[in-house]
């Protein structure tokens, strides 16, 4: 039962990503070319409502389903890892049209070529693990 709810949330996520067209390479290109409001509208809506939701969860000290007070992780306050890592991520995002979630949704959708992107992403993650201590964070 506990396993099932996470699978179902994933199914819903896959459907949302597909029906919003956020898994589309073309939509990501349109976004980076500033030729449509679509992707900005999606992310903007999620973040605007998200800020309100997170504020209310903290303010009302809401508890999780396991009875603990909900807390939000603070990201460590550095600069280089975010700007350099983010830029590298963005290069790949524009080229493949897929961030990690949509890669897997695309495979389910039937774009098996996306498996090659996933193999690359696993390799990239592995490379980071090897050289992480040599990088500025």
């Amino acid at each position: 039962m506990k396993a099932l709810k996470f699978i179902l949330a994933g199914v819903l996520f896959g459907i949302i990503m597909t029906k919003s067209e956020a898994i589309s390479w073309f939509r990501i290109q349109e976004m980076f070319r500033f030729q449509s409001f679509h992707m900005y509208g999606i992310i903007g809506t999620a973040v605007t409502l998200g800020i309100i939701a997170v504020f209310l969860i903290k303010k009302l000290k809401l508890k999780s389903s396991e009875g603990q007070q909900i807390t939000f992780q603070h990201k460590e306050k550095t600069f280089y890892r975010y700007i350099i890592g983010g830029t590298i991520f963005g290069l790949g995002w524009a080229l493949t049209g897929a961030c990690p979630g949509p890669m897997f949704v695309n495979v389910g959708y039937g774009y098996l070529a996306m498996l090659i992107v996933i193999i690359g992403a696993l390799a990239g993650t592995y490379i980071y693990g090897i050289i992480k201590d040599k990088l500025p964070h």
């Binding site: 975010y82 590298i88 991520f89 493949t96 690359g120 992403a121």
Partner: peptide, 12 residues
């Protein structure tokens, strides 16, 4: 492209 996404997301 996949390598860039995987490396970049973990680095960031």
């Amino acid at each position: 492209g996949g390598i860039l996404v995987g490396f970049g997301s973990r680095y960031a």
